[in-house]
Design a protein around this nucleic acid. Sequence first.
DNA 1: CTTGACCTTCACATAGATGTGAAGGTTTCA
DNA 2: TGAAACCTTCACATCTATGTGAAGGTCAAG
Lengths: 122, 122
Amino acid sequence: MKIGELSARTGVVARLLRYYEEQELLFPERTANGYRAYAESDVERVRNIRELLDSGIPTWIIRRILPCVMNCGSPSDASVVPSIDAETARVLNQERERLTCKVECLTRNRDAIALYLSKAQW
Amino acid sequence: MKIGELSARTGVVARLLRYYEEQELLFPERTANGYRAYAESDVERVRNIRELLDSGIPTWIIRRILPCVMNCGSPSDASVVPSIDAETARVLNQERERLTCKVECLTRNRDAIALYLSKAQW
DNA sequence: CTTGACCTTCACATAGATGTGAAGGTTTCA
DNA sequence: TGAAACCTTCACATCTATGTGAAGGTCAAG
């Protein structure tokens, strides 16, 4: 699919899809005329990128996270044993801990909002 | 407490504590000489601000969220029934839903990382 | 009383994600 | 063939959160 369709299906403007490619989060093929050709799976990939960015994760970390997410969801779950270097393992472990912290923080704040709204009157 | 102590106890540099005040997230008193005087509870408040910022929540939303969090945690749980306007209620409801989405997204990604790391070899 | 460690305000710089638009090539359709 | 709707690259602007430093006031210890 071309960039316009991916944009329409994800709600992400073309400019940003090109930016994500520059940041090595997306790797579209190119057709003969130079147009980007995205895979069907890129729709989900872009949605995940958006969510991670919205959660305050910078692109250089998303770059490390995406292989994890896209790996286990692959067809027939033929999850090949991934081979990673020590540095990547370190970053991923650290990010896993950070994500746990964020989940706790957001859950706590969300529950506080819910409680507040249930008590509030307007 | 003065800004230096709050900075030391939260790990947030003074420059940012002043910025959060400008953004109406903190409201320190002033001593006669013009120095900012923070309450003990601001330590926790600043920690919460940091976590929310790190989770990608912009200051204008944090401004709305903080009253919820600081309310229910108050002494003797004498949670006064808060009175809010319709606009605030709308924003809070929307943000509650967004936070739920983020929690799901981050949990999913964290679990994916954990699974990936458990299978990976390095 | 002076030095050093605080504090103040103000201003300008930076980084990452995003907006906007120019200048031009490709495809489709009337 | 020509207009409309795509696509390309490139460049510059913007916003938010943050870094950095100047110029100067306050205070405690020697």
